[in-house]
């Protein structure tokens, strides 16, 4: 029997959060962590609350803190998550908890919106697509795949301290996704908006974001590129 310890908090009935233990029969299968949550909700306690959608690691709903590390429940197999037959599941750290494993992502989304995450091109659109070479397009690889799960930003100490002023790794990855796009003409305006002591420069290169990203992306590297663009702009 797998020992699962879940973070519980219902704002209507609980004064404070607590950990609740469940013994779950996995029948020896190497389930995903999400499957275990589904089992608990179906067979142990229907009030256990979490988000989930695609169950294949592309929608970004079920970012959780699993045995101390942020990750997506649906693509975290027990064989890689469980330590000493124990699974401790908490909400993503640093954001307000709404209930159980569900956090309030408003701040995270606000930082994303701040970088104007959409293509801006001042020239009139052609009758067909704008042309882009495979090499130019390759600049977007490792950037556009972000699923906004917030595993990175909520593992970042700089984001914990300044979630309202430091854009955070997820937002900055998207900022660079548009800076790097050969079709975008708003580079100068984008950089001007980021050029303050907090938005970008609170990143101290700790690289927690890189370690936890379930899509294998590297926000630190993207932040480095933005930093470079800001510095060369200043000189």
């Amino acid at each position: 029997m797998l020992q699962v310890s879940l973070y519980r908090y219902n704002p209507e009935t609980d004064d404070a959060p607590y950990m609740q233990d469940f013994s779950v029969d996995t029948e020896g299968r190497d389930l995903m962590v999400l499957d275990v949550l589904e089992l608990i909700k179906a067979e142990h306690d229907g009030s256990v609350t979490y988000r989930r959608s695609c169950r294949e690691g592309v929608c970004g709903s079920d970012g959780l803190n699993i045995n101390g590390k942020n990750g997506l429940a649906c693509i975290s197999p027990l064989s890689e998550s469980v330590k000493n037959n124990k699974l401790v599941i908490r909400p993503l750290p640093g954001l307000p908890v709404i209930r159980d494993l569900v956090v309030d992502m408003s701040l995270f989304y606000a930082q994303y919106e701040k970088v104007q995450p959409y293509l801006q091109n001042a020239t009139p659109a052609p009758a067909i697509e704008r042309l882009q070479s495979p090499e130019e397009r390759a600049q977007l690889d490792g950037l556009y795949e972000c699923i906004l799960c917030a595993c990175c930003s909520t593992s970042c100490p700089s984001f914990w301290w300044n979630p309202d002023r430091f854009i955070g790794p997820a937002g900055l990855l998207q900022a660079y996704r548009f800076l790097a796009d050969s079709r975008d003409t708003a580079t100068e305006e984008r950089l001007a908006k980021l050029d303050d002591p907090f938005s970008v420069f609170r990143c101290h290169g700790i690289q927690n974001c890189v370690n936890v990203c379930p899509k294998g992306l590297n926000p630190t590297k993207a932040i480095g590129h933005i930093r470079g663009m800001l510095l060369s702009r200043a000189t």
């Binding site: 091109n121 659109a125 079709r183």
Partner: peptide, 8 residues
């Protein structure tokens, strides 16, 4: 034109 990163 909206920015969809199609392969090329």
């Amino acid at each position: 034109h909206m920015g969809l990163p199609f392969s090329r």
